[in-house]
Design a protein around this nucleic acid. Structure first.
Length: 274
DNA sequence: CGTTAGCCCTGCTGGC
DNA sequence: TGCCAGCAGGGCTAAC
């Protein structure tokens, strides 16, 4: 499931390949991908548009287009974005939702078995307004202990669902919330507003460290995630608690526990996380 | 306002 | 062995 490290990996790989290229045409094979917008106007608007840059905001991938518009792709749960040097064929066509034909003869394809992924065109300053709703980038200077403290202050809900709230911090998903809370030694059920200054400091730091380590290992592949070359990430090999129910905790050798929190599977060590 | 529950989707897993 | 209920979850909306 692409979270910040996975989307960043794709961005780094694709940026040199698409920047300066022109979109010759676009094919939308699943109307749900662009709903509630209809495919036809989008296809028309993207024809012969030049890509001036590729950016990321939270888990969103942003194709900047000449003229100021932005093509936005969110892969949600099972979406993959792959760059091909040939027409999609065979396995490429399975779950195929979108094909972007580039002017150098390469193809950018979006496949998505679960069909949760979304694509949209934000025109003009609609883009700016859209991103205003998202919280700070955890790897930017805007995110530090003070910013995290402000986001948590006075909140009664558990810290884990708070970390998943994109309006407070952008880009953290279920995997990295579990891993960062373990690194910080904080129990996922703890009320957000009850964290001490020391804990907030540890959490801010562990969020940054966890995301950075994950980017270095090119993200996590549990089942469907692949980078733009079709390769899996390797961060899942270093999971401390996520998806490791019943296995020994790397800290105390006790058993990793799984609970449901905010509707999400949540893994933690009851002894190491207070 | 803050918080929570349910919904969208469909491939895969686990239990019988 | 085969079947099928239930699980997975990011982001949105409705409800409290």
């Amino acid at each position: 499931m692409p979270e910040l490290p996975e989307v960043e990996t794709i961005r780094v790989q694709l940026a040199p390949a698409v920047t300066g290229r022109t979109i010759e045409r676009v094919r939308i094979l699943d109307p749900l991908l662009v709903a509630p917008e209809r495919p036809e106007p989008l296809v028309r608007k993207l024809k012969q548009r030049k890509i001036t840059g590729l950016e990321r905001r939270g888990k969103y991938l942003l194709f900047r287009l000449a003229g100021g518009d932005t093509l936005v792709i969110h892969l949600r749960m099972t979406g993959t974005l792959t760059l091909l040097d040939h027409e999609p064929s065979g396995e490429d066509k399975r779950y195929l939702r979108l094909v972007i034909f580039l002017d150098n003869g390469s193809f950018l394809i979006l496949r998505d078995p679960r069909r949760f992924g979304k694509t949209m065109l934000l025109e003009g300053d609609a883009a700016t307004t859209y991103w205003d709703k998202l919280g700070p980038e955890p790897l930017s200077s805007a995110f530090n202990q003070a910013a995290l403290g402000r986001a948590l202050a006075g909140r009664s809900r558990a810290i884990k669902p708070t970390l998943l709230d994109q309006q407070l911090i952008a880009g953290i998903g279920n995997i990295y919330a579990d891993e960062a809370l373990f690194e910080a030694g904080i129990r996922p059920q703890k009320r957000s507003g009850d964290l001490s200054d020391k804990e907030i400091e540890r959490l801010a730091s562990s969020i940054r460290q966890t995301l950075k380590r994950a980017i270095k290992l090119q993200g996590s592949s549990i089942d469907s995630y692949r980078d733009s070359r079709g390769n899996p990430g390797r961060f899942q090999e270093t999971f401390r608690v996520h998806r490791r129910e019943g296995e020994p905790c790397p800290g105390c050798r006790g058993r990793v526990k799984k609970i449901k929190l905010g509707g999400r599977g949540t893994y933690f060590c009851p002894r190491c996380q207070k």
